[in-house]
């Protein structure tokens, strides 16, 4: 029963909150939809923190796609040996995980100490950073310490298929029961973080301006045509 809750009900609830919340905020409160940059208030120590964190999390995202979304059969078919995969996952994944953590810690210290930034930091901002730090921390722990000291856990046979089964609406929760605790904690905390996204500044991750390079540099907008487009 607990397995059904954590590996079926809870993920679906989080994803529902994420999607409905995003749509609601986009539709009714776009005015608050922005990247929460505090660069204006002081550049000191921002550069290292923000670059480490953002690039780290982008590579971490790609790493998760490779490890969780891509089935192990693909690696077998491509002839990637387990040891080669392990090497890439542990050192590559561990490195970007440490980048994310280092960035977050720098940003957290900046938020707590640099004066104008401190005043402008809200509860949601602290929550976001601490939650990200927790998720990243468990991720780094299991990637580096658990894998190297306890046992290299082959999540591509359990967590991967379970995660993919969520998308087909046939959640295979039995796969998760034997997963080590630290991995479970990472997954659950990540889903909890997903549910919080619509309520924090993290929404800006969905605004990557992918259309920008293809757009003509100058933009004219007619008052009347704009209204028609909106209707």
């Amino acid at each position: 029963m607990t397995d059904i809750f954590w590996w079926v009900i809870f993920p679906y609830i989080s994803i529902t909150i994420l999607i409905v919340g995003l749509i609601y905020r986009y539709a009714f409160n776009q005015l608050s939809w922005t990247a929460p940059s505090t660069e204006f208030l002081g550049k000191k120590s921002l550069r290292a923190g923000t670059l480490l964190f953002h690039w780290g999390i982008i590579f971490a995202f790609i790493g998760h796609l490779m490890g969780i979304l891509v089935p192990i059969e693909v690696y077998v078919a491509l002839g990637v040996s387990d040891s080669a995969y392990k090497f890439g996952a542990i050192y590559g994944g561990g490195f970007v995980g440490l980048m994310v953590m280092a960035g977050l810690i720098i940003l957290l210290i900046r938020k707590a100490t640099v004066d104008p930034v401190r005043v402008k930091t809200s509860f949601a901002d602290y929550f976001t950073v601490l939650a990200l730090l927790f998720v990243a921390g468990t991720g780094v722990y299991m990637t580096i310490i658990y894998n190297l000291t306890v046992v290299h856990y082959e999540y591509r046979l359990t967590i991967g298929p379970w995660f993919r089964s969520l998308f087909t609406l046939q959640p295979n929760y039995e796969l998760m029961s034997a997963v080590p605790f630290i991995f479970k904690l990472h997954v659950i905390s990540a889903f909890a973080l997903f549910a919080s996204i619509p309520f924090t500044h993290l929404v800006h991750m969905f605004s990557i301006p992918v259309k920008y390079p293809a757009r003509p540099p100058q933009q004219y907008r007619s008052r009347s045509n704009y209204r028609e487009e909106q209707l």
Partner: peptide, 12 residues
């Protein structure tokens, strides 16, 4: 031209 989101515009 610098705005990635296309939020700035010149009124027709």
């Amino acid at each position: 031209a610098s705005c990635p989101s296309g939020a700035l515009y010149k009124r027709d």
